[in-house]
Amino acid sequence: MKIIIADDHAVVRSGFMHILNYQNDMEVVATAADGLEAYDQVAKYQPDILLMDLSMPPGESGLIATGKIKEDFPNTKIVILTMYDDEEYLFHVLKNGASGYVLKNSPDEELLSAIRTVYDGGTYIHPSMATSLVRQFVKKDSGEVETDPYKILSKREIEVLPLVAKGYGNKEIAEMLYISVKTVEAHKSKLMEKLNLKSRPELVEYALRKKFLNF
């Protein structure tokens, strides 16, 4: 199977490449340092599997890239590799089209098993996250009301929203917009409140749905 590894740390990419290329049934055909590069590499190589880190600042995050890649290249199956043992992230990456969710502290055998399971058409969830997944799917719909962000958000909040969703930190956003870090924090808190969002994954999903990530 052809595999692409997307992670912002070169040493991590190198380590996983060594593990996967040692397998008789796996070949790493390319690597990427962020979501945008991952998209380009998938377009070029059309791999069977994309092994994707969830957080790759300051570039485009794996959470954002997963939805784009799955929409444009449905035959490429995505396995998320992350440090986040977080049910919110798990729920959102699965909704965005990922087929696997593996924690970075898992043994090599688990990663290999996850890749093979996904390649064969299955879904792999780290065992510790299975209960969280069930909890998320049995929750009743929150009844989110669709609102026009251009009517309820200030101009500055509209500028901050896509930057937060793309994974930039408060300091980076402050430098980009020539405002203080405290002002960024205030705008971020206010827009989350106005949009009734409780977590960053929810904000990312909202930004994707409203096309803010094209900014």
Rank of each mutant, 00 (worst) to 15 (best):
K2C: 04
I4Q: 05
I4H: 03
A6D: 06
D7G: 12
D8N: 14
A10Q: 09
V11N: 10
V12G: 03
F16D: 00
M17F: 06
N21F: 11
Y22P: 05
Y22F: 14
D25C: 11
D25N: 12
M26E: 03
V28H: 06
A30C: 09
D34W: 02
D34P: 03
E37G: 01
E37Q: 10
A38Q: 06
A38D: 07
A38E: 02
D40R: 04
D40P: 04
D40Y: 02
V42I: 05
A43H: 07
M52Y: 01
P57D: 08
P57F: 05
A65D: 03
T66V: 02
K68T: 08
E71C: 13
F73N: 05
N75I: 04
I78Q: 01
I78A: 00
T82H: 11
M83I: 05
D86G: 14
D86C: 15
Y89F: 14
F91D: 08
L94Y: 03
K95Y: 08
S99N: 08
V102S: 04
L103T: 10
K104V: 08
K104T: 08
K104M: 09
N105A: 15
L112C: 00
A114R: 04
I115T: 01
T123W: 01
P127G: 03
P127C: 07
M129W: 00
M129A: 03
M129S: 04
T131M: 11
S132F: 10
L133Y: 02
R135E: 07
D141Y: 01
D141N: 11
S142H: 11
G143M: 11
E146N: 12
T147P: 03
P149T: 01
I152S: 12
K155L: 11
R156W: 09
R156A: 12
R156G: 03
E157M: 00
I158Y: 07
L161Y: 04
L163W: 05
A165Y: 03
A165L: 04
I173G: 01
A174C: 15
E175T: 11
Y178P: 04
E185I: 09
L191V: 11
E193K: 13
L203P: 07
V204S: 06
V204G: 04
V204D: 06
E205P: 05
L208R: 15
K210M: 14
K210L: 10
K211Y: 15
